[in-house]
């Protein structure tokens, strides 16, 4: 078990190394002078020179990389070109709304999608299954911002049930916090519920064809017990895997949802920084999101060993 954990932990090192290299090279991949790209169309030669100097672009590439990686490893993500504030500080200020949105989406998704998927698999081909599969196909086809605007139009503007936009921190009280979070979480959850329900359905359907399900039926086990104890648990491994992989998708959704609902989180910071070509902030954000992805998948690996004893050895 500890061996497994240690191995997984070590395996994240090459992944993060690749991420670091890609993030570092991003600026140098494009055509032309990176400093000119960052400075934008209306920059004077002095502006460009100043940026070049600040980012150390006059050094040889490998020196730049080593300097940068050394700073990153000590927690220094650089200084924003736009606001002159440390990137780490900018990111820390914006973490809460993004975490709230992501965790809310995760909870809503799992609570809704897993039971739906199991029910659809149990009566595969039945009305619930057809409705679910049809709904899922639709949810995949509509971009999250369209869903967001429809929800705002119906629940905030027409029915005036919930606030149109904005965010209230948890410190302001649970009710305003949840009222502001409700629509964004629902909007973002649509596609994930579709995804997880489909995967759960497929996985349970496959497990239901296993020999040990027949063994359980031969024991006289009831349907509910059969589904919960014999079918769902082994079926959860692929579901958890997809949740881990879908984290990357979630980040994309968060970026869009925060823009739609005007939530001051990391997603908004990302969009703003991209539009301002605030390169150190973009780098820092990609690094943080990638590290979060790697961390999530580390937890997923641990969950495997809880769910499936065969992986524990």
């Amino acid at each position: 078990m500890t061996g497994f954990l240690l191995q997984r932990l070590l395996a994240t090192i090459p992944v993060m190394a690749v991420v670091a290299v890609v993030v570092f090279l991003l600026l140098h991949l494009g055509p032309g002078d990176p400093a000119a790209v960052i400075a934008g169309d209306y920059a004077t030669p002095e502006d460009i020179e100043r940026i070049r100097d600040r980012l150390g672009l006059n050094e040889p590439l490998h020196v730049q990389f080593l300097t940068w990686i050394g700073q990153v490893l000590t927690g220094d993500l650089g200084i924003s070109i736009f606001s002159n504030l440390p990137v780490a500080q900018l990111i820390a200020q914006r973490v809460e709304p993004t975490l709230a949105l992501s965790i809310g989406t995760l909870i809503l998704t799992v609570v809704v999608a897993v039971p739906l998927g199991v029910a659809a698999a149990w009566r595969a081909g039945g009305w619930l299954d057809r409705c679910l599969m049809g709904g899922a196909a639709l949810a995949f086809a509509v971009p999250v911002f369209v869903i967001g605007y429809i929800l705002i139009y119906v629940f905030a503007i027409k029915l005036s049930l919930l606030p149109v936009q904005g965010y209230r921190p948890l410190a302001d009280g649970a009710v305003p916090f949840l009222r502001h979070l409700a629509l964004p979480v629902v909007a973002l959850s649509f596609v994930f519920i579709a995804l997880i329900a489909r995967v759960t359905r497929a996985s349970v359907l496959e497990v239901l064809g296993e020999d040990y399900i027949r063994t359980a039926r031969a024991k006289g086990v009831t349907t509910f017990r059969l589904l919960r104890r014999h079918a769902l648990r082994p079926a959860l491994v692929p579901v958890v895997t997809v949740i881990g992989i879908a984290f990357a998708l979630l980040v994309g959704g968060v970026v869009v949802t925060e823009s739609v609902f005007n939530i001051p989180g990391l997603g908004r910071l990302t969009v703003d920084s991209v539009l301002r070509r605030d390169y150190p902030v973009i780098q820092g954000l990609i690094l943080v999101f990638s590290a979060a992805y790697v961390f999530t998948n580390l937890i997923v690996d641990l969950l495997y060993s809880v769910l499936d004893p065969r992986i524990r050895e």
Binding site: V15, V21, V22, P34, V37, L249, V255, V271, F289
Partner: peptide, 17 residues
């Protein structure tokens, strides 16, 4: 490594730059 970088982030960064 590439999978660890959220796709939309990578895409907007590539396009912006």
């Amino acid at each position: 490594g590439i999978m660890a970088i959220p796709g939309i982030l990578l895409a907007i960064a590539l396009i912006a730059l």
